[in-house]
Nucleic acid binder design. Structure first.
Length: 699
DNA sequence: GTAGGGTTAG
């Protein structure tokens, strides 16, 4: 005996079914009560409901079976299935069903067109999309807001914003979604200015933005680096008591991150009542990108104790952080985790190539690169840059040539890496040759960074006049970086007067960077112009900027040990000093003479020598020697450029202790072995990098 | 219609 309910019970019952089993139970009940399958209008609707319910609960097999067996398929039946496939994210199925539907002579309605156009957009299939758009117009949906918005979205996703604008301007009626589609579309192709101007138009027409619009605006502020506008958008939302959902808040965090306000980003993050992996990831990438590796690692730990599993994006930020401080052990662990638990793609491979290279393991970087099948330009750029910082300019060039063979077109970043590789290896002719081709053949307008490389290359080869001529020939006003490159080239060459002239030029441009003051001061010191040295020091004090203290980190057994200049805080300090004294004696026997030219101050010779002795890289090397077995390769990372005297000393040390010593300074690697350095003594002056802010601590 | 991720000079 069954109790047969009266009234339209199927709809309400099916709508509460959350899984396919309960749908099947209701289905059974419908068969038993005999309300299914006779073909009148009401039953049609029941069938549609069932198909939709099966599809909604993920039972596409049953939905499809019912659909195929159902003799009276109407637009509603097609709708049920097509919308379900669209929700599932199967654009191919959506388009396939659309085509079948046309073949069976059914006229699609507005929602079918909308959903199918969306499918084309997600496949970036412009051709099919336009064909569907044409048919929609034929069916009389030319001015339908939903259809038009979908067409806008299709063009926006395909990056055709000119087309989108044409459609948009022709729309007789615009709703919030169409405005938003335009804003997001422009953001997507990097047209933040246009996005903002569309928003202004929207405001003028009396339309209020919602959360999605705010997201578009905040993204524009992020990519334009327009903090002022970002703050005003944030203020607007607060004034309007806007309910900020997790997406809006996360975008807000990203906006602050991209504008360098990590503290504000953190405080927005802390106030969030609901967070997800993306919000964690946004903040973590902020710290990683800005060189706050320790904070990024802390977030990784916190997010896990909050019950979130790090996903690909957050792990890539972790890799960036590892690259920054040279933490190979964690980088390897992340590599393993990604390989085991997540999909290994060319994006993560690129991050790992960069990580291995920056952690001193060029060979691992290369073998990873060789194993990646789908390489895009960024992967190539990463490996070229790797060879560059390791001082292997010829290998960088040979990889670059291979890249060209694959018909990938090098971009400005490729050339930045390539030219820098030449400059680290002193390949002057190659540098000039490719710089030339970059402009004439590849039609890439040289940026300042490219000039910096070439100027640096010429200046360090002693061709200062040519470098100077190149600067004079620049179309845009040369920035301070170019002059600094010229100046650092003059630093260890003979041209003292010229150097001082450039030093004064640099001072005129009011550097805001203590490293540059140090360089300028060095140039005057080399000329024994102590008066100028004193005035530079005064300028530096007045600018309120302090010289960043040198800090070196040694990796020993996967732990990082950091040393500041003149650091006496390490528990093994006495042993370290004893080691340095022993090394000093051995070095002197071999002919080492301390070169106090690299000490800025006008002091007694003996004091200067003592100061060299306490440079952070020496402390780190001595510590690493004390705590590793014979033959183990040392890896030292330094926050500034390696000092010229330490560079000399390290060559001796590598010979005395018969070890390979790898030193990563702020911009490149030095591989010391058998008394030689891979950089061919092409060491360079560089500027700050944000660094782990520590006294002494194990990371 | 909406959020975080890989390369780039000194």
């Amino acid at each position: 005996m069954y109790y047969i309910p009266r009234g339209p019970w199927t709809k309400s019952l099916l709508s509460v079914c959350r899984d396919k089993r309960s749908v099947a139970q209701v289905h059974a009940l419908m068969i038993l009560t005999g309300i299914l399958g006779t073909g009148n209008n009401n039953n049609n609707n029941n069938n549609n409901l069932l198909i939709a319910s099966y599809a909604r609960t993920g039972d596409f097999l049953s939905a499809r079976c019912m659909f195929d067996d159902f003799p009276h398929r109407g637009v509603m039946t097609w709708n049920a299935l097509v919308i379900a496939y669209s929700r599932k994210g199967s654009p191919d199925e959506v388009i396939g069903l659309y085509r079948r539907m046309i073949l069976e002579g059914i006229k699609p309605d507005s929602s079918i067109f909308t959903v199918t156009l969306k499918a084309c957009a997600s496949l970036l299939d412009l051709k099919t999309g336009e064909e569907i758009r044409d048919f929609a117009i034929e069916c009389g949906y030319k001015d339908d807001v939903f259809v038009c918005s979908s067409v806008l979205n299709l063009y926006a996703k395909c990056g055709k914003m000119d087309e989108a604008r044409r459609v948009f301007d022709g729309m007789p009626k615009k709703d919030l979604v169409s405005w938003t589609t335009m804003i997001s579309g422009f953001v997507r192709i990097g047209g933040s200015m246009e996005a903002v101007s569309i928003y202004r138009r929207m405001q003028n027409e009396g339309m209020e933005g919602d959360g999605v619009v705010m997201v578009g605006l905040l993204q524009s502020c992020a990519s334009l680096g327009d903090l002022k506008m970002g703050l005003s958008v944030h203020g607007y939302m607060i004034r309007r008591e806007f309910t900020m959902d997790v997406v809006v808040q996360t975008t807000l965090i990203d906006m602050y991150v991209k504008n360098g306000l990590l503290t504000v980003a953190s405080s927005v993050f802390k106030k969030m009542s609901y967070r997800n992996v993306v919000s964690w990831g946004a903040l973590m990438s902020g710290f990683a990108q800005n060189g706050f590796a320790g904070e990024a690692f802390e977030l990784l730990i916190q997010m896990q104790s909050d019950g979130f599993k790090p996903d690909m994006a957050s792990l890539l930020s972790v890799l960036v952080a590892c690259s920054h401080i040279g933490l190979l052990k964690l980088g390897k662990a992340v590599h393993g985790y990604i390989a085991r638990r997540l999909e290994f793609d060319h994006v993560s491979a690129t991050a790992m190539i960069d990580m291995y290279s920056k952690c001193g393991s060029l060979s691992s970087a290369r073998s990873l690169f060789d194993r990646v099948n789908t390489r895009d330009m960024i992967s190539w750029n990463a490996i070229i840059a790797s060879y560059g910082v390791h001082g292997q300019g010829r290998e960088a060039l040979s990889i670059f040539l291979q890249m060209i063979e694959t018909n990938l077109k090098p971009d400005h970043a490729t050339f930045a890496s390539l030219l820098s590789a030449f400059s680290h290896s002193g390949l002057v002719e190659e540098g000039l040759h490719w710089f030339n081709l970059m402009v004439t053949y590849y039609k890439i307008q040289p940026h300042e960074k490219h000039y910096v490389c070439v100027v640096d290359l010429l200046a360090r080869a002693g061709r200062v006049e040519e470098a100077h001529e190149l600067i004079e020939a620049m179309v845009n006003e040369p920035g301070i970086a170019v002059w600094v490159a010229l100046l650092s080239g003059c630093r260890n060459k003979v041209n003292i007067d010229f150097g001082q002239k450039i030093a004064n030029k640099v001072l005129q441009l009011k550097p805001d960077d203590p490293g540059i003051y140090a360089l300028v001061s060095n140039v005057f010191a080399a000329a024994r112009n102590w008066e100028a040295v004193a005035s530079v020091r005064k300028l530096m004090r007045n600018s309120g900027r302090k010289k960043i203290p040198g800090c070196s980190v040694a990796e020993v057994n996967g732990r990082l040990h950091a040393f500041l200049v003149e650091d006496k805080s390490h528990p093994q300090h006495e042993k370290i000093v004893a080691m340095l004294e022993w090394l000093d004696q051995e070095m002197r026997k071999m002919g080492y003479v301390p070169n106090t030219e690299f000490v800025l101050h006008d002091l007694d010779e003996e004091v200067k020598q003592r100061m060299l002795f306490n440079h952070s890289e020496r402390l780190a090397i001595a510590f690493a020697l004390l705590n590793t077995g014979p033959g183990v390769r040392l890896l030292i990372t330094k926050n500034l450029r390696v000092c010229g005297d330490c560079h000399e000393a390290t060559k001796f040390i590598s010979k005395i202790v018969d070890r390979e010593i790898v030193v990563r300074d702020v911009k490149r690697f030095h591989h010391f072995k058998d008394g030689f350095c891979s950089c061919g003594d092409y060491w360079i002056f560089s500027r700050k990098r944000r660094w782990i802010r520590i006294e002494y601590k194990e990371v």
